[in-house]
Design a protein around this nucleic acid. Structure first.
Lengths: 337, 337
DNA sequence: CCAATTTACGGGAATGTTCCCATATCGTTC
DNA sequence: GAACGATATGGGAACATTCCCGTAAATTGG
């Protein structure tokens, strides 16, 4: 048996008042006498009264809850984004509920339904590497529930997005390697389905082009971001008849893994092989040699995404904006290059 | 203007049925004709109908939501715990809402009220370093809402708790240093208010006692876990007339910070000063020299805490258990000792 | 001192859903 | 063919709150 939570009716009955009056006191409505005000407040305190937000939400058709769906929890990246989003959500009086799509389309769709059922006022999404159909997200638009994409965004929907300047960051990283006299720069790339992979790859290509270094497709290896596979690819690269003298990795976990493998082979980093990552994860500054990487403001991404979403929620549907916020990256040069 | 969400009444009206019948179809009740069943399901699909969980929660007095309150987001520790908890919560059909007490008592209390207002079915809590009064948490017991503590637990409440064997872990860490011939082992301790500090300190003391090493109170420095202060304390220790030859730190961030400072002074780790941490954070295996540390199963802590909570929710109040789950730690010996 | 205005409060609908009870229709059985 | 049971559906209360509308009582002004 569920214990009874005290309600305004309980308070009303005990004081011989109507629930209307009690509600007025509790919501700070002026037209109520000081005497009853005091009485209600005192009794409410005594009974540990807490307003039931479920009924308020139901009545107002506003849950003061926003959802966030992320594709993975392996690295510290998405947890950090979530914490950033939580911060500004809480500040604005919103609860945050987390969905974990686990890099699979079906789970993303299921999470999406859950969010709808829970009547979220808005949704933050970073896509699965599998997601190619966006019907489940377009439902939100039709229902007038704003969406904001971050990191892994959807090109075919006109909603706010928060990304980092992946192209620029990758370009600068590769340029940096070239200036360090590296001639054969490999790229451990992400899957084509992700825009960030495509943009970083483009940055890589354009940097090589600018300095007239021939692009060797053999040195470009797209993979599905499952860390265990890095070993295979790095070994493959090292066994080439004309092996690379540098590796630009799609992200820091990949770079760190590659670095460990290269070191174990007895090769010198950066002399034999220089390595550059992308993200500036916590660990990247601490490993030996410290990893050169493109830093991106992770927590800030969560914060701005949440802020954009809340702005959108507070706007009328007809005034929805489609801002694309591009956060700056910065090349952090360390020992690995 | 809020757009209208389609409800069972909308479906009922379009099909000339009562909401009862529509509800029956949607909840899978048997006594409804196949023809109307099909009609309802088809229309529901067309209109993107999603059940409004708010009203269901209100009716059932069960929100299928659990809350988690953590004291800080600085390290990756609590985010990892949260992700663990989220995992089993989602599995069991619960939403997780996050509260951030920011190491201050007042914020913890405020979060606590929010959780009540949101009608959580249960609460996971890791206490603030300031929290000494537990009235705000005892309210939950009175209201019949189960609580489970993790990591930073409350001694005076009889509810389930999940901790690691802090005493044991600390004891083994210090014992390890002693076996490495260290004679003057300093301890960068946590604040007295936290049980984990007290237990780890006790482990430290007992290890020294066991090997008949005199305890020098000068070498025990409790601090408030604000990383910036580590520098002051380490410098202080190094300037002692009889400086330590090892440091056992309350946690990994502290140990890592200490290690960097000691290295910068030109001292050799571990020859001049050995360093041992506690937690096995991601970074600790990657720094140079790699940090010896006491590993604790972080994600698992979130998982078991959530599991205990859900068990408790499914039990009658009269059958509440007060299990204390102690997770095993393990000494990971690396280069820093 | 009476009318007008203000003050303080009560009643009831509405939010979306479930579930119990009622009831109409139909088929079955003796 | 009457009585009964099964099947399918409708009606309405309940969950906790807010807010509009109505209305007494109290206060004010002339």
């Amino acid at each position: 048996m569920k214990r009874h939570q005290t309600t305004i009716v309980d308070i009303a009955k005990k004081l011989n008042l109507s629930k209307s009056t009690v509600s007025r006191v509790l919501t700070g409505h002026p037209s109520v006498s000081e005497k009853t005000r005091q009485a209600v407040l005192e009794l409410a305190g005594q009974l540990d009264y807490q307003r039931n937000m479920l009924s308020v939400s139901l009545l107002n058709k506003k849950s003061n809850t926003i959802g966030i769906i992320v594709p993975e929890f392996m690295s510290s990246y998405f947890p950090q984004v979530i914490m950033g989003a939580q911060e500004v959500a809480a500040e604005a009086g919103y609860n945050l509920i987390i969905g974990h799509s686990n890099e699979t389309y079906e789970t993303e769709v299921a999470n999406t339904r859950l969010m709808l059922a829970n009547q979220v006022d808005g949704l933050l999404v970073s896509l699965t590497k599998e997601t190619r159909n966006f019907d489940h997200l377009k439902i939100f638009e039709r229902k007038g529930i704003p969406i904001v994409f971050f990191n892994r965004v959807c090109d075919e929907m006109d909603v706010p997005k928060v990304v980092v300047d992946d192209y620029e960051g990758a370009f600068r990283a590769v340029e940096h390697l070239i200036k360090r006299k590296k001639k054969r720069i490999a790229h451990l790339a992400g899957p084509d389905s992700l825009l960030i992979s495509v943009k970083r790859l483009r940055g890589y290509r354009d940097a090589l082009k600018k300095y007239n270094i021939p692009i060797d497709e053999e040195l470009i290896i797209p993979y599905d971001l499952t860390i265990a596979k890095v070993k295979i690819y790095v070994n493959h690269l090292l066994r080439l008849s004309n092996p690379p003298d540098a590796i630009f990795a799609i992200n820091d976990p990949t770079a760190i893994e590659a670095l460990q493998i290269v070191k174990k082979k007895g090769l010198d980093v950066p002399k034999d092989i220089a390595i550059v990552g992308f993200s500036n994860d916590l660990a990247s500054g601490l490993i030996d040699p410290a990893l050169t990487t493109v830093s991106q403001p992770v927590k800030e991404m969560g914060q701005t995404a949440a802020q954009l979403l809340i702005d959108q929620i507070n706007r009328d549907v007809s005034e929805w904006k489609t801002i694309i916020r591009v956060l700056k990256t910065e090349l952090i040069v360390r020992k690995s290059s």
